[in-house]
Simulated assay, not measured.
Amino acid sequence: MRAAEIRLPGVAPVVVDREVPRAGDGEVVVEVVAAPVTPLDVLCAGGKSYFGVPRTPYVPGVQGVGTVDGRLVWFPTSAGMEPGDGSMAGAAVARRSDLVELPDGVDPVLVAAAGLSAVAAHMAMTWRGELVAGEQVVVLGAGGVVGQAAVQLARLAGARRVVAAARSAEARTRAAAAGADAVVALDTSDHMELVGRFLAACDGAADLVLDPLFGVPAAAAAHTLRAGGRMVTLGASAGRTCPLDAAVLYGRSLRLLGYTNKELTGAQQGEAVGVVAGAVARGELVVAHEVVELGEVTGAWERQEAGVVRGRVVLVP
């Protein structure tokens, strides 16, 4: 079978011929239909993350969609985080207990594109952020995959208003297409200018901010929150530190919360994938993506690493 293979940490994978993997106890061989190239894959392969240097060579891919005994399933792997191979191949091994059966007729590419990013958006808002129907939500970084999913999933959870924020014009277009009620431009580092933009976009005080950015955008968005409002942070692409106004923080008794998918139990992850797949199947969740043939993985990987992809790259064998 053909497979993408990382031969050296920090170097993009190449396509090689490999034998079909064999399943061990409690495992199954999945015939891969779609495998996304995600920031986590690049992070793991780089050898500089908290997972340590991966054992090479290995097949990357921390998640995928494929078939087992004729059933379409989503599956995770620990490729790059632990020794072993992942989803970017014609076939992959997964634990049977980790499989999530997908709805009939659902597009596997759309599920793969949403994947764990949509799981993060859903769980960060509903489980960690305790989103309830009727609340106003602010989504930062709404042009990215997590942000696009968050805009749509917040609406499905009953949010009365969703305010999106993104830096580039293209990203703001994607946020608007996802269904945001208002879109804020993050094209300045002027903190008070951003505060004004957020306040103008919100219909009164916000209840929840979903924050994959941190930095100045998060500090500005905090000004929109009501007393007791929540901010859930799950990334720091705008800065590792955040200039929060202390008076806003303690004066409104805000709750600042962190989130990571790693905290989820297997059951929680499986249930969240089911929610995401169901929304995809009903046409209620679509994120920007592009389909790339497995043989073109090197170029796709390099574009993901450089941050110039438009949405999620999904490899098809």
Rank of each mutant, 00 (worst) to 15 (best):
E5R: 15
I6A: 12
V11H: 13
D17C: 15
E19P: 13
V30M: 04
P36F: 06
V42F: 05
C44V: 13
C44Q: 01
A45C: 02
Y50T: 13
T56V: 10
P60C: 14
G61R: 02
Q63C: 10
R71V: 00
W74M: 03
P76R: 12
M81G: 10
P83W: 10
G84L: 01
A91H: 03
A94P: 09
D98T: 12
D98K: 01
E101A: 13
P108W: 02
A114I: 04
L116H: 05
M123Q: 15
A124S: 14
G129N: 02
L131H: 02
V132F: 01
A133Y: 02
Q136A: 12
V137G: 13
L140H: 01
G147I: 09
G147F: 04
Q148H: 11
A149Q: 07
A149M: 03
A150Q: 11
L153T: 06
R155Q: 05
A157P: 13
A159Q: 11
A176G: 15
A176H: 05
G179T: 05
D181C: 12
A182Q: 06
A182L: 11
V184P: 04
T188M: 03
S189H: 03
S189T: 14
M192D: 10
L194A: 05
L194N: 04
G196Q: 08
G196C: 15
F198R: 02
A200I: 06
C202D: 08
C202H: 03
G204Y: 14
V209I: 08
P212G: 09
V216F: 09
A221Q: 07
H223E: 15
G229I: 07
R230E: 09
T233D: 07
L234S: 08
L234V: 07
G235T: 02
T241V: 14
L244S: 01
L244M: 08
A246G: 08
A247G: 14
A247V: 01
L249Q: 05
L254S: 10
R255P: 00
L256C: 08
L257F: 13
T260V: 01
N261F: 04
K262E: 08
E263N: 11
E263D: 12
L264N: 09
T265P: 03
Q268D: 06
Q268W: 00
Q269W: 12
Q269I: 00
G270S: 07
G270W: 00
V275N: 03
V287W: 00
A288T: 11
V292Y: 14
E293L: 05
T298F: 04
R310M: 15
G311F: 00
L315Q: 02
L315A: 12
P317T: 09
